[in-house]
């Protein structure tokens, strides 16, 4: 892997070339991850991320982290074991959120005129930062999966609460009580998303009474651990150099 033999003539030039290479790789990786991750997340988390009246304390809390930890786990595996670069998860989330914001702003608001305060994406950054730091400090996939996966699930709801809490203030509307988020879903007509396909407040965690969000978050954390393992291995496999070596 000596880059200084043919392409460049001096050490300074080699450093410069390597730096250019860094930027190009980062740029490409960012957008490739953005594209793949964005599509994956829209297909699996879709409506839960699109609408505030889907962002409940049971299913959204459970589903979003589980489907979101996939790409971060894989990209971490690529960047950490080969380069000891601990920003795989954050890179993914930066890409995903940029894609989501472009989509919400241009399509949901710009094209269809849904107010942005109804269609903004979920915040996944706190979990991603902690995931990266745990991998860096522990240098262990198992620890990252267990501690990081759990944190990723647990940090999701509190990390979003400052944004969605104002929408959970109750209103009385024509004799019925609902939250402002419910009212957004009712007011801003979605012909293609009838109310009955909304999957919120369903599940079997009834016995926990009103403290259902932490329970859902723990469950999500445990599932995230499993998904982390799978996608971390997937990332490692994808990152093998066997294909290059034989060539």
């Amino acid at each position: 892997m000596s880059a200084s033999q043919s392409a460049v003539r001096s050490r300074a030039e080699a450093v410069k070339a390597s730096r250019t290479f860094d930027w190009l790789i980062c740029f490409t990786l960012f957008f490739v991850v953005l594209g793949g991750y964005h599509i994956h997340y829209m297909l699996t988390g879709g409506d839960w991320d699109f609408w505030t009246d889907w962002k409940d304390r049971r299913l959204w809390v459970t589903v979003a982290p589980i489907v979101a930890i996939t790409f971060p786990a894989a990209v971490q595996a690529m960047l950490w074991w080969r380069y000891r670069l601990p920003f795989g998860a954050v890179l993914c989330i930066l890409g995903l959120l940029l894609g989501e914001w472009i989509n919400r702003y241009l399509n949901f608001w710009g094209w269809t005129y849904f107010p942005v305060n109804f269609v903004f994406p979920s915040n996944l950054m706190p979990g991603a930062i902690v995931l990266d730091v745990i991998l860096m400090l522990s240098n262990s996939m198992v620890l990252t999966a267990v501690l990081g996966g759990l944190s990723f699930g647990l940090l999701f709801y509190p990390g979003n609460w400052p944004i969605i809490a104002p929408l959970h203030v109750p209103v009385e509307y024509n004799g019925m009580m609902m939250t402002l988020a419910d009212l957004q879903g009712y007011h801003y007509v979605r012909t293609g998303t009838p109310e009955y396909i909304r999957m919120v407040e369903k599940g079997t965690l009834r016995t926990f009474g009103k403290d259902v969000a932490p329970v859902s978050a723990f469950f999500s954390g445990f599932m995230s651990i499993l998904i982390y393992f799978i996608w971390h291995f997937f990332g490692q496999w994808f990152n093998k150099t066997d294909f290059v070596k034989s060539a």
Partner: peptide, 28 residues
């Protein structure tokens, strides 16, 4: 970064709860 993240999440959550003491789950 990690400590800051956790601290900010915890703090912003508690200030949010102070600011919005009354919230209800989504109705379905």
């Amino acid at each position: 970064f990690a400590a800051g993240t956790i601290a900010i999440v915890a703090m912003s959550m508690s200030t949010t709860n102070e600011k919005f003491p009354v919230t209800t789950p989504l109705q379905a």
